[in-house]
Design a protein around this nucleic acid. Sequence first.
DNA 1: TTGTACGCGTTATCAT
DNA 2: ATGATAACGCGTACAA
Lengths: 346, 346
Amino acid sequence: MTDDASTRRRKPATIRDVAQAAGVSTATVSKFINGGQRFTREVEERVTAAVRDLGYSSNPMARGMITGQTGNVGIVILDICNPHFTSLVKGASRVAARAGLNLLFTDTAEGHTPELAMLQALSRRVDGVIVSARVSEPALEWLQHAGLPVVYYGGHQPGPGCRSVGSDNRAAALMLGRHLRDLGHRRVAYAGFSGARWSAERWQGLQDAFAGCDSALRLFDVEAAVAEEGERIASSVLLCAEPPDAVVAYNDLIALGLLGQAQALGLRVPEDVSIAGFDNIVYGRYTSPALTTVDTASELTGETAMQRLIERIRAGADTAPLPGGHDTLVARVIARRSTGRRAART
Amino acid sequence: MTDDASTRRRKPATIRDVAQAAGVSTATVSKFINGGQRFTREVEERVTAAVRDLGYSSNPMARGMITGQTGNVGIVILDICNPHFTSLVKGASRVAARAGLNLLFTDTAEGHTPELAMLQALSRRVDGVIVSARVSEPALEWLQHAGLPVVYYGGHQPGPGCRSVGSDNRAAALMLGRHLRDLGHRRVAYAGFSGARWSAERWQGLQDAFAGCDSALRLFDVEAAVAEEGERIASSVLLCAEPPDAVVAYNDLIALGLLGQAQALGLRVPEDVSIAGFDNIVYGRYTSPALTTVDTASELTGETAMQRLIERIRAGADTAPLPGGHDTLVARVIARRSTGRRAART
DNA sequence: TTGTACGCGTTATCAT
DNA sequence: ATGATAACGCGTACAA
């Protein structure tokens, strides 16, 4: 038993150890590891054996110093507990893993650090980053200036050469609006979240849907895109002087809170009021009634964003200054039982 | 306009650039950056100015080569989409951020790579890792052997000197069982997930609760801890020859599926059957009836695990071979409307 | 085909 | 208090 089972960290074998064990030079080992060259049968076997015996794998940091690549990609999320973002991370994680890249995850809601400093720190540890959180103007500028490969989630266009991924929120809201309109709704409340960039777009889409028909749309605002906020504003939305016959929430979490509270207040859904949200989070299926929503392809969004990011990283080696662009993912209304037909007005 | 706004990545300033600009040596700059020494008013100002002007920050890889530290910590999760794990990550992320560490996230469900290889690759890029996924025996051994600081989620004890965090599942299930027993339930089904280590512990706890009373407990098994699986086995659990008057699921996701499907099958919850789960995921509040569950302090678990990990990392420098141990977090039954009183048996 | 030697950016050691 | 310099582990021209 020469092997002491202590918890002390033992130092991994270096390329020199392998070279020595195999009786070749470090250069030979390096070329062997990184492929791209053929060797004598003899040498090949000895190196293979040495690598195996010593359990060698190259030191990512030392390698990174030479190549300028970290082998990591970053993803900056506002709040991982929002299932929409969770799925986004899931999709991104899958593609990254497949490409042999590690995922550096940052939840901005947890950072006491100012976001600019956070991004600067992150930028040295990754080859590129997906930004899905709202970032300040200076941070955006710095990111642009630093030349780090970035893919934005959402229709951000902070200049040409920028890459972004997301669905057309105005069109999505238009679809949902038409669904409600076709069901006979005319008095619609929108529980928006002005802290998010797209809330306004969704509000626009809703207005588009009801344009030219005798309707009353009203805008409310929550302070965070969470279920608790949906609960908080429920009574002010539902029990006002001229209550709506349908409520659209900025996202499913808010809708969940509204739905629960509506029922607690004695309203029947959808008989008294229809409720709908955005994102098609899986838990919308398990409320009763199940929640009508708009699927925004969360997981596919993450996958696509990561693919685009990897493209940009790979291209970074070349001289081509890769053009920007936007991937628009198709949204889709998922009609469930929380929205129902309204009788024709008297 | 000397500043070309192209997307090309520009090289960050090095410590040598700063040294030259400030008219001092690199050693001085290094000491200045890392603090811990006093300088001449003169030097201090010049270095500060140079750092600011050049926007210098040290290269983590180069620094890591010397210090042997990466500044990253890893977290290995089975499935980020399970809200329990999402919260775990959230908690861990918070503590890591506060400690200035970056979080390297790995979802094993997405890895085509065998977990051992995945862990080996990860181990070179982090200073320590939280393992929350079930890992194979060889992977466990390798981890132990490598001497990388590790904190396990759950009552893993792969030897002394190991650190782990988790709640007492048997005790937690005992509590839930007593709750059901006190409500008058005697025929209880457990929808376990034998793929998870604790499922057996929870089953044990349930049996403990009903020991010595005339009861019938029955064990079912799902193939994944997801809502769809709860739906899948619902009919076989609920519509069998001698149906249960209460069903306990391995976790809330399975319970959600069971609850939805039970209602779809025409059963009233809790009048016809009580349903309960584990983890206290937030969406259990928004079903109707709301889901009775056992809170396992998901977020606190993540925080605690990360704190323990950081302790181990910091101690790694010293010679003390830090003792192992287990943090037991207190679980708590959250009784909601999905469990109800049963009439005394005839 | 294989080996030598240099440089990547930093910290630590030792001398001043 | 400050400076010179040797590592750290690796990739890669260049020489052989």
